[in-house]
Design a protein around this nucleic acid. Structure first.
Lengths: 343, 343
DNA sequence: CTGAAAGCGCTTACAG
DNA sequence: CTGAAAGCGCTTACAG
């Protein structure tokens, strides 16, 4: 009875079955499996046929045992879980990485380091060699997990430039400063002159660089820097809302805001609406990310598109190269202004 | 040069090193590792000490090769990717499952079946035995992947009752009908009499059952069923918005809406707002899920809480039991009305 | 309770 | 180009 279902899983064919079927040795089958070098066309063909006939699939454990590779990678999230729950950017990234890895037949192990305990367990798991490398998503500086992994020599590639890890770690990022410049220039082109900004956390590159881009463009336009127009958030919707309220209180004549993330921009829209300001007539709002959040608002957000597909594809490419022995590399991808109704 | 970083990964200690250090055989070390049965206290202690001293961590590939288990499970998402990007429920579930599995030292492999090609690859991967079982998230009926896996005898547990798979597959679900009943009763208790509903897709249990709960309570209250008050959505925000517009057009006197998901309720709020209806004064809005989306709106949503933590914990528990040879089981968990400002 | 031994399914020098 | 053989690190009957 108990077997009726699970009994469906028979012992799968091994390389030995394929070898016998093809009339060759197991070594030859293995060579075909691993690129087909040093194999005669005839043998290769016989093996291919035998594989199809037997339905053979390689046993990854046996392979890993001997190669020392796991042929899997970890996707490590060290963000506070509220952000993970709230920000659709993670989903986009996760989807992109899963897809890019699938093309290489490499499974993605999801690791979420919320508590201290989880952090420890995950570091132990990774440094034990259970994954070949790690895709790291953690924006904040001084991440102890990242540093531990780097020190242990684990191949790593971060999403966004990791502050405080030196140049020894690979990363893929959008051109934050340039993106911010594009948005602020766009706002100025619209004729706005009192442009506020809600930055990201200033211990993240996105926080620092997007602010820098804002400041540069204002200076180039000959507008004086006004501290009342600058507030910081933590990328959460709530912090955007609170930030807009502070801006409104300090600079009621503000006619535009550049917000360093779409999620915060959602909060800004809420606060503006409550304050009776029309968007974009009274205040133009520009976001950053072009995440799914950007089209969930009304009006929909003008924003700076981060090329998530390319970001995830590059993260995977760089990680696999790193696993293959290449030196660390940084990849900076261009952004794009997406014009919608909020400006 | 190339070695400078990756060279940090030395050959890790094996069971052999531990055995030598502890002065016992490898078999004894293995026995300690696997529960400590048939091992003398003295030997166990020596082995434990040797493990700590050497920093030994089991090589999972070697273990799997012999046990035939992979000691990992897949988390399979067969939803259209838009839903995955938009709906924070997935994140909550993913987080919960990862956490529950981590307690068992079992990694979660994320699998996203968007395209036909991905579907095929994933089925091949799973049926090859690369994971011991699968946590399945796919609300729609007639999912071919689910059926293929079930037929192949892969241990499976679904989130929500899988329509069309018969009773042969385990699942964990919230009590949809009861939750819907609670919400509609709450609306009636508020004095509302023209209560509309935006259902989920009617080929999902959540769609069918929540509608049934709505209908039951109205009937019990002696209110006549009015088809103009019933529209269906697909759980997306946009479909909620469109649904509310249709309701408003067909039943302008509507004074409450029960919406079968928080995300759709977000859309309903947008449409209501645009139509100049105040919430909750003119129209009370009740959601379902208590997802992070419920507190991102203004006013925040009164909703039916699905116990996500328990759902994910139970999914993992049931799956591990199933992998261990137990028969399929269904677990239905109670919901709870969460009162906020939208009613 | 414990050790010696077989074997899981693969890859990879090594000879030819 | 190909086969025979060793060995990856573990678990598990089998004898004691």
């Amino acid at each position: 009875m108990t077997m009726s279902n699970t009994g469906g899983r028979r012992k799968p064919p091994t390389i030995h079955d394929v070898a016998r079927e093809a009339g060759v040795s197991r070594g030859t089958v293995s060579r075909v499996l691993n690129g087909g070098h040093y194999v005669s066309p005839a043998a290769a063909q016989a093996v291919d046929a035998a594989i199809r006939k037997t339905g053979y699939v390689v046993n990854r454990h046996a392979r890993s045992l001997i190669t020392g590779r796991s042929d899997s990678v970890g996707f490590l999230l060290t963000e506070p879980q509220e952000r993970f729950f709230e920000d659709p950017n993670f989903n986009v990234l996760l989807r992109g990485c899963t897809q890019a890895l699938a093309a290489h037949d490499i499974p993605l192990l999801l690791m979420i380091a919320g508590t201290q305990d989880e952090r420890r367990r995950i570091v132990r798991y990774i440094t034990a060699g259970h994954v070949d490398g790690v895709l790291l998503v953690s924006s904040h500086s001084g991440d102890p997990v990242a540093e531990e992994l780097r020190a242990a020599g684990v191949p790593l590639v971060a999403c966004g430039k990791p502050i405080g890890l030196g140049s020894k770690v690979s990363y893929v990022a959008a051109d934050d400063r340039d993106g911010a410049r594009d948005m602020v220039r766009h706002l100025l082109d619209l004729g706005r002159r009192r442009v506020g900004v809600v930055t990201g956390p200033l211990d993240t590159p996105g926080g620092v660089e997007r602010l820098a881009g804002y400041q540069e463009v204002l200076a180039e336009a000959g507008l004086e820097a006004d501290g009342r127009l600058v507030v910081s958030g933590d990328y959460s919707r709530a912090s955007g809302e609170a930030g807009a309220e502070r801006l409104l209180a300090r600079a009621p004549d503000m006619d535009a805001v550049f917000v360093a993330s779409d999620l915060m921009a959602q909060g800004v829209l809420t606060a503006l609406h409550r304050a009776g300001r029309r968007v974009p007539q009274d205040v133009a709002v520009g976001g950053f990310d072009d995440s799914p959040a950007a089209v969930a608002t009304s009006p929909r957000l003008t924003t700076i598109r981060q090329p998530w597909d390319r970001i995830s594809a590059e993260m995977v490419r760089v990680l696999l190269a790193r696993i293959g022995g290449e030196e660390p590399a940084a990849v900076i991808l261009p952004t794009e202004l997406v014009k919608r109704e909020s400006t």
